[in-house]
């Protein structure tokens, strides 16, 4: 069913752009569709382009850099007006980015940076993953005030840069609060199943959960698994144990709306919006944007309309 919707959307995009547009053409090389967030990023980009009257040429690389390089060369050959690139890896881009530069085609990197000289691309639109952790930590500081709070942390995949950053950002934020300490920290591999299993052990290890004041999970999926573990242990998630995590996937909004979780920091799928803004300014008068455009890390709490957020996110193809 979802497939059908995507097909309809892409059919709409393939139609000639609306008359009021400047009718610029942009190539978008996407990594693939390995996660709900990635699918949302694709649909947001397509929708945004349509709204702005930009013709979007979309290429799915299916997790392969060689496909991305091919796609970029294709875009250059077609003489597009700009290229959006969500790079699958950080290295090996110098040559093809050089070719784009020689053809005077601005390249905007989406959601990841590359190891290449920064004069080879116009700008990079990414989230600040350290900052995401900091937002989560700041929320917890506000939420607990001066009360003593033992935090358990569900880390992402060991060694991944997102894991390292989100851990650091959170630690930095709570460093100033002596009443908040991380008592246990384990990897949950970014998965629901592992998040649940590890949370079970946290509960057992910390006095049946009564010693735990809050859970910080590096992504929503682990938090969602942990919520089930907390419920099965006879505790109330969101009340007995506060829960804050990052990503803002639809199911997390549902959990927050039910009071089973407290907060999530959005990793916005709208990387294309700031990218198109920068491109339109560049096309208009050659304005050079900053080399790094940081997307907003919006905090959603129980005060927000999470049901709307849920519907909204679902519609994006999560």
């Amino acid at each position: 069913m979802k497939l059908m919707k995507t097909l309809l959307v892409s059919a709409a995009i393939a139609m000639p752009a609306a008359a009021f547009a400047e009718n610029e053409t942009v190539g978008f090389s996407q990594i693939g569709s390995e996660s709900g967030w990635r699918a949302a990023e694709t649909s947001v980009t397509k929708a945004d382009a349509k709204e702005r009257g930009i013709t979007l040429k979309f290429a799915d690389a299916q997790q392969k850099q060689e496909n991305q390089i091919k796609a970029l060369r294709g875009f250059i050959a077609q003489g597009v007006d700009a290229i959006l690139l969500a790079p699958v890896v950080a290295t090996g881009w110098d040559e093809v980015l050089g070719e784009a530069k020689d053809a005077d085609i601005p390249v905007v990197l989406l959601d990841r940076k590359v190891d290449a000289s920064d004069d080879l691309y116009l700008t990079a639109v990414t989230s600040d993953t350290v900052h995401e952790g900091t937002v989560a930590g700041d929320w917890l500081k506000d939420a607990v005030g001066d009360a003593q709070c033992n935090v358990v942390e569900l880390q992402g995949t060991t060694g991944a840069s997102v894991t390292i950053d989100r851990k650091k950002g959170f630690a930095d934020a709570i460093a100033s609060a002596d009443n908040i300490t991380i008592v246990r920290s384990q990897t949950g591999d970014f998965t629901r199943a592992q998040g649940k299993i590890v949370m079970e052990s946290f509960i057992k290890a910390e006095g049946g959960g009564s010693d735990i004041c809050a859970l910080y999970a590096h992504n929503d999926d682990m938090a969602l698994g942990a919520i089930q573990a907390i419920k099965e242990a006879g505790l109330k998630p969101g009340e007995d144990i506060k829960i804050v995590s990052i990503d803002s996937v639809p199911d997390m909004h549902l959990a927050i709306s039910k009071g089973e979780a407290n907060a999530t920091v959005e990793l916005t799928p709208d990387m294309a919006g700031p990218a198109f803004d920068a491109l339109e300014a560049y096309w208009a008068d050659g304005t050079q944007p900053e080399k790094w455009i940081q997307t907003d890390s919006t905090l959603f709490t129980q005060d927000d309309d999470n049901e709307a957020a849920y519907e909204n996110k679902k519609a994006l193809g999560y």
């Binding site: 390995e34 998965t191 199943a193 649940k196």
Partner: peptide
């Protein structure tokens, strides 16, 4: 069992 445990089918990780 694994899917029922997390109330969802996680094709990437199950």
């Amino acid at each position: 069992v694994v899917a029922a445990d997390i109330r969802g089918a996680d094709a990437n990780n199950a």
